[in-house]
């Protein structure tokens, strides 16, 4: 959860939710019918997923990433049975005041 009142900064945490294990027909179709069909070779796999960005106040970047990972798990933003949560990165957005 956003740690309101905590002295620190404002961070934008980028996450993506992708399928793990089971078939990914959207990614497979993009690979087959767009990438490979265009004549490009060398692309072996395309993974589809959903992007979310969380702006959060936290003491530091590491804390922001951890808080977002925790809330994504706890609130079932992704379904751990079928999805993998990718932590894509974090940006310092300043004090947020």
């Amino acid at each position: 959860m956003p740690m309101n009142g905590v002295k620190g900064g404002r961070y934008l945490v980028h996450v993506a939710i992708t399928l793990k294990g089971s078939r990914d027909p959207e990614g497979e179709t993009i690979l087959k019918d767009v990438v490979t069909a265009s004549g490009l070779s060398g692309v072996l796999k395309v993974r589809s997923g959903k992007y979310l960005g969380f702006v959060i106040s936290a003491p530091n970047a590491e804390g922001a990433v951890k808080a977002v990972a925790d809330l994504c798990y706890r609130l079932r933003i992704y379904n751990p049975t079928v999805h993998e949560l990718l932590m894509l990165g974090v940006e310092d957005e300043g004090s947020g005041d």
Partner: peptide, 16 residues
Amino acid sequence: VESGLLPGALLPNDPP
């Protein structure tokens, strides 16, 4: 399924 009252998950169709 999302509420956990039934098991499993419902994913995008294959073919998509």
